[in-house]
């Protein structure tokens, strides 16, 4: 806490005051925690028999299957959305106006809609839950990733492509050998953060009865009453932890990639403000 926009280096009186705040703040937070724990305890949520269900091999298998189903939808949606994003981004950067307009319209449309509206339509018309989820996720995330790709390509300094054209390279060559490699390096952290969003959004499968992790948990908790109580708290705690662990693992990859890119001798071009705003939108 030395140089901050908000505070100077604290003097003796400030240090004392901060220490008082620390004590008061700790007490307040501890009080809040105790309050919640007592409320939960009074409902018998910490009784051992409420947690017994996790000991059964069948339940463990169900949760594992849920994780696998979530990851399966995520993996397919991630691959397809990146492919679709390549197509959309290429379309938006095209030299031909009709292609540009069509790609822009598609991207803006899919980006502006709530994902669940699209997934519901796909599910209610023709698709089974799994494919409705995967296609919905692909359309939405593909559009968002396309914007990230485009921002990345646009963030490469103009001199790079001008120099390549001056050397006599063709459009495709400039794109593939000059622009894309630099753009990918700049946008990789944003791409991965959007993948985290994709992973989280697989939980929308719950609403169309695709048996992914959240749905499994809901059914599990709803079907195992223990002495008249349903173990929602216990199951949601376990499932929430699994989700948070998966997302943080992916985020950790993003941080690692970012660090690596910064360490590389060529260095990563800084992400443009436009690109950062896009990532914020995506969330």
């Amino acid at each position: 806490m030395t140089a901050s926009v908000l505070y100077d280096a604290p003097g003796p009186r400030t240090r004392l005051r901060n220490r008082i705040y620390t004590v008061v703040g700790s007490l307040a937070l501890a009080g809040l925690l105790v309050f919640f724990a007592m409320r939960l305890n009074s409902k018998g949520e910490f009784k051992s028999y409420m947690w017994d269900l996790f000991q059964y091999a069948g339940v463990q298998q169900q949760i594992t299957d849920g994780v696998v189903a979530t990851l399966k939808a995520f993996a397919l949606a991630a691959v397809f959305s990146l492919l679709l994003a390549t197509v959309f981004a290429a379309g938006r950067l095209s030299d031909h106006k009709p292609v540009r307009i069509a790609a822009s319209a598609a991207v803006e449309f899919f980006r502006a809609l709530p994902l669940i509206i699209m997934i519901y339509l796909l599910w209610a018309t023709v698709f089974e839950p799994f494919w409705a989820l995967v296609i919905g996720l692909t359309l939405y995330n593909g559009s968002v990733q396309a914007e990230i790709f485009r921002a990345g390509i646009n963030s490469v300094p103009k001199g790079q492509s001008e120099a390549a054209y001056a050397l006599g390279m063709r459009k495709t060559q400039v794109m593939l050998t000059i622009l894309v490699p630099q753009a990918v390096r700049a946008m990789l952290p944003s791409i991965i953060s959007q993948l985290v969003v994709t992973l989280k959004d697989t939980s929308l499968g719950y609403l169309i009865a695709y048996t992914e992790l959240l749905y499994v948990g809901r059914i599990l908790a709803g079907n195992t009453p223990t002495l008249g109580n349903y173990p929602y708290f216990q199951v949601l705690l376990v499932i929430g932890t699994i989700y948070i662990a998966m997302c943080m693992l992916l985020s950790a990859v993003a941080t690692w990639v970012e660090k690596r890119a910064r360490r590389s001798p060529k260095g990563a071009p800084p992400a443009t403000p436009e690109a950062e705003a896009l990532v914020a939108t995506a969330e």
Binding site: K200, S203, L214, L236, G240, C247, M248, S251
Partner: peptide, 16 residues
């Protein structure tokens, strides 16, 4: 909160 799916939060709001 950033790493939890919103649907899960809705379940927490509904049941807990």
């Amino acid at each position: 909160l950033r790493n939890t799916p919103l649907t899960l939060l809705f379940l927490v709001a509904t049941f807990i």
